[in-house]
Write a protein that binds this DNA or RNA. Structure first.
Lengths: 360, 360
DNA sequence: TCGACTCATGGAACCGGTTCCATTGACAGG
DNA sequence: CCTGTCAATGGAACCGGTTCCATGAGTCGA
């Protein structure tokens, strides 16, 4: 091991000032594009900066200006595949801005509260983007007190701007699609309504489903709505149970693509053809959905991240809290190859000849 | 819009000192667990901290200590699905440490060089984790000069510790598996060897493949080795071309799971059965590979991220540059349902009856 | 020609911590 | 009883920037 302390010489603003034969204040003014510097001095200072390869210390700058050129993103880190796409959008928006992206990973309520506790200070992050997690109201209040601009993404809260999807509408879209194809025995697989981090997307999508079913006058057999943690394997298990029922559903609406893949797995394992025996609709349109040929409700994940980050950056730019508007992004049903009209006759229980196990 | 400046009162170390009736230095000593504080004073200070809900300003602390409690991670942001899993590992390792995770997204060489230019300073990040990107040697030298500890993940460089996979060996494993099943006409789909960011995993895996084929005395027909950007759709297109050949391969080794999914898509589109007509092996074992039933070379992605981060944290802990060792993680062939022995007779060109289009 | 004003600039104070140094008081040893 | 040691502590200096204020030079109108 080598001792770390033999650090290279660090060039400070004083060095630049000395080299250019000016005061430190002037160098600072040049750095910050202040108009109160003559062209000749500016040129001399810039030359010195170039020569010495000077880069201002972000900590010092942050300390004296009371901001840290940092944007905090609180994410339930990749527990949902969709978070990754959103994060990409955020990163894209930050690109070229002068802000660094600090990630606060949340995988449990304890986690979340810890982070919120330390983030209610302007010195940790200049702005906060909270993804998918409904922030506790008192945290929101403290953040507002501290003057930390907050933008919510895929969740919402009082008095704070949010970029959201109309999950209820999405649930309606998916259900409608299945009803329009002629399905009536449509089951639902979604998140636990009381999941530890309080994600609400699943429940909203479920609400859309329930509304639409009710509106069409279709009754839900008991047990047609299943809940479980947001994991493929769980969705698969829930679906296996559904598919073993005498009144087997002819279609399943999964509240996310990840879960929909679990549904497809279960169908495959049961020797059922998709969409011949069962239709499947997902939600999100993550990257692999294209591969799986999954019919799904597309929401603009990347764009949502980008938009949220832009709103935050704009607010930081002009030193105002962002307008507490809700930005609702559009949804679109992407029809691929996992939905079709129910097959007549074959739809009655498992008595129908199971088709050969679908490949892969 | 509301003016940001009406910020809540910020509690400083001076306030705490005043409340506890001690000097600022003493408070600082308490904060940093210095032994030179009497128990009674310590208690008084802690009480004041509690009472005022004081939290030290990280910028100020960073400025005076010359470190920023931040760990920079340079990532080709999600251009490979595997990066996400690795990042999760990194986040997991950081969890509970006092370090924040700052993400530096890289999607082009310009990007990369910009980041490296600003990161060669101890004040931007206390340590740097560089993922998958072979860092330019002069950047590495400057980082070393500045005393910034660096750990490489999925790439390597002189004098710097690295956590790597033996990609060549992985290529051998995959090819061996196919040869052992009886395949001879084994094609390869990989990354462009001169891809803009200089990823080398693809080429190494290819090397393993070539070695093994040569070792088995199997000649590669021209065009059996295909290259293209690391994207599913491209891999699909390349495979379509392969599958249309008169001497169609009976197996394809894709240098990553993402690409393998493209291969599977192409096979499906061509009406070929997997593994009946074509066997497919991938590399990485990302989450969806399980869903796709893909036979693949598993590398411990999450663990690799975790290990790399730990090495870096340890180095930061004791103020030394980490030992420039290479940590090589194990590989394992995961056999699922996309590989099987080649079917006799059917293996000669497209004359064989194409099986029905696989579902989904 | 002189005062009022503008403009570029240097320098000090400040941001909120850490750390070194000097001071104080207690205590042990001679 | 005096001195040397040492632990606990207050306070100043410092980290490297930004910003306010004072200064001096130059401009302009009366």
């Amino acid at each position: 091991m080598v001792d770390t302390r033999e650090r290279g010489v660090v060039v400070t603003i004083a060095d630049v000032a000395a080299h250019a034969g000016v005061g430190a204040g002037t160098v600072s003014r040049v750095l910050n594009d202040s108009p109160r510097v003559s062209d000749t001095t500016r040129a001399r200072v810039l030359a010195a900066i170039e020569l010495l390869d000077y880069r201002p210390n972000p900590l010092a700058r942050g300390l004296s200006r009371g901001r840290c050129q940092t944007l905090g993103v609180v994410v339930p880190f990749f527990t949902h595949a969709s978070a990754v796409e959103r994060l990409r959008g955020v990163a894209a928006a930050l690109d070229g801005s002068r802000y660094d992206l600090v990630l606060f990973n949340v995988e449990s309520p304890v986690h979340r509260d810890e982070h919120f506790a330390t983030l209610t200070r302007r010195d940790r992050a200049d702005g906060l983007l909270i993804m998918s997690l409904p922030p506790p109201p008192h945290s929101l209040a403290r953040l507002a007190d501290a003057g930390v601009p907050v933008v919510l993404l895929d969740t919402s809260g009082r008095g704070v701007p949010a970029v959201v999807t109309d999950d209820v509408e999405g649930g309606r879209l998916a259900t409608h699609h299945l009803l329009a194809l002629g399905h009536e025995r449509i089951a639902f697989i979604g998140d636990d309504p009381d999941n530890p981090l309080g994600f609400t997307a699943g429940s909203s999508r479920e609400a859309g489903y329930r509304q639409t079913m009710a509106g069409a006058g279709v009754a839900l057999p008991p047990g047609y709505v299943c809940h479980g943690p947001h994991v493929r394997a769980i969705a698969r298990r829930l679906t296996e149970r559904l598919l073993a029922r005498r009144d087997r559903p002819t279609a399943v609406f999964a509240s996310s693509d990840v879960q929909a893949l679990g549904v497809l797995e279960a169908a495959r394992a049961a020797g059922l053809d998709v969409p011949g025996d069962v239709s499947v609709v997902g939600f999100d349109d993550v990257e692999v959905s294209g591969y799986a040929g999954l019919t799904t409700v597309r929401q603009p994940l990347f764009e949502s991240g980008q938009l949220a980050a832009r709103i935050l950056l704009d607010a930081l730019e002009d030193g105002h809290l962002p307008e507490p508007r809700e930005h609702r992004l559009g949804l679109e049903l992407v029809e691929r190859s996992t939905t079709a009209p129910p097959s007549i006759g074959r739809s009655r229980g498992l008595s129908a000849t199971p088709k050969r196990n679908a490949q892969r």
